[in-house]
């Protein structure tokens, strides 16, 4: 049985990005309709060629970085390619950052406003990271 899973990602910390990517990828490849909304500090990591270090929130983040855990961006991309997930940048965050869609990773879907995302998320699972 499939379900709709909506994931809001606002943190730029490694642990939260990793957990969000895990939920998105496993949820999507398990037949669920997954929609991710990237905003606030999370969005900067999805600018093409982003090279800024990903801050660790705690010790586990350092462990993740040191071990061969799948990179969160790889997992998000696999959610799209293998599970047809939709990953939307927040239009407000794009305005604040002064970036256009072409500046973001090409596997992201179109920018979305919060009103539309919340409307789509009605009566569905919602996870926030």
């Amino acid at each position: 049985m499939s379900d709709r899973i909506n994931i809001i990602v606002v943190s730029g910390a490694r642990e939260r990005l990793q957990m969000a990517a895990m939920v998105a990828s496993v949820g999507a490849v398990s037949g669920n309709e997954v929609s991710v909304f990237l905003s606030m500090n999370a969005l900067a990591h999805f600018v093409r060629g982003a090279a800024a270090p990903v801050p660790n929130e705690g010790e586990f983040g350092a462990l993740l970085a040191a071990k061969r855990a799948p990179a969160f961006k790889t997992l998000f991309e696999q959610a799209v390619e293998l599970g047809d997930a939709k990953i939307h940048p927040c239009s407000m965050a794009m305005d604040v950052m002064g970036i256009e869609p072409a500046a973001l990773e090409p596997w992201l879907s179109e920018p979305l406003g919060l009103t539309k995302f919340l409307d789509d998320a009605r009566d569905a699972q919602a996870w926030t990271f």
Partner: peptide, 17 residues
Amino acid sequence: RGSFCPGPLMELIAGMK
């Protein structure tokens, strides 16, 4: 080998495709 969850699962699914 050496990959952590959900890496092996995702590699399997890519192989399935």
